[in-house]
Simulated assay, not measured.
Amino acid sequence: MRELINRSLRAAKNYSLWDYAFLKTTLLSLGILIGAYFAKFFLSHMSLLLSPLIEFEPYPLININ
Rank of each mutant, 00 (worst) to 15 (best):
3 E>M: 08
37 Y>R: 08
12 A>C: 06
41 F>Q: 04
47 S>R: 13
33 L>C: 12
19 D>Q: 08
60 P>C: 02
19 D>L: 05
32 I>S: 04
3 E>A: 15
37 Y>S: 07
5 I>N: 04
25 T>A: 15
2 R>D: 11
50 L>S: 10
42 F>E: 02
26 T>Y: 12
22 F>Y: 12
5 I>F: 07
1 M>P: 06
44 S>H: 08
33 L>G: 09
8 S>M: 09
55 E>L: 12
39 A>I: 04
23 L>M: 07
15 Y>V: 00
4 L>D: 13
60 P>L: 03
59 Y>D: 05
32 I>K: 04
37 Y>F: 15
57 E>R: 04
41 F>S: 01
3 E>H: 13
22 F>N: 11
55 E>K: 11
43 L>R: 06
65 N>D: 11
31 G>A: 01
62 I>D: 07
63 N>K: 14
25 T>G: 15
57 E>S: 10
11 A>T: 01
6 N>E: 14
46 M>T: 03
65 N>W: 04
5 I>A: 06
37 Y>C: 07
36 A>T: 03
39 A>W: 02
65 N>K: 14
20 Y>S: 03
27 L>Y: 11
18 W>F: 02
1 M>Q: 07
26 T>Q: 11
57 E>W: 03
58 P>C: 02
6 N>A: 11
26 T>P: 00
9 L>A: 14
43 L>E: 05
25 T>E: 10
6 N>T: 05
49 L>V: 15
18 W>G: 00
57 E>I: 05
27 L>H: 12
50 L>A: 14
21 A>I: 08
55 E>S: 14
36 A>E: 02
11 A>W: 04
3 E>L: 14
29 S>F: 08
31 G>I: 00
8 S>F: 05
56 F>V: 01
19 D>A: 08
58 P>W: 02
64 I>A: 11
24 K>W: 09
12 A>P: 02
45 H>P: 01
5 I>M: 13
63 N>G: 02
2 R>Q: 15
28 L>D: 09
12 A>G: 09
4 L>E: 15
48 L>R: 06
52 P>W: 10
49 L>Q: 01
1 M>W: 10
65 N>P: 11
51 S>E: 09
52 P>V: 10
34 I>V: 15
10 R>Q: 08
34 I>L: 05
45 H>M: 03
47 S>A: 14
12 A>Y: 05
46 M>K: 08
64 I>C: 01
35 G>E: 04
14 N>V: 08
29 S>I: 10
62 I>A: 13
30 L>I: 07
28 L>F: 14
55 E>H: 10
34 I>H: 06
44 S>C: 05
1 M>G: 15
14 N>I: 07
39 A>V: 04
57 E>A: 05
20 Y>V: 05
63 N>W: 03
1 M>I: 06
13 K>T: 06
63 N>L: 05
55 E>P: 00
58 P>Q: 03
29 S>V: 09
30 L>D: 00
22 F>C: 07
18 W>M: 01
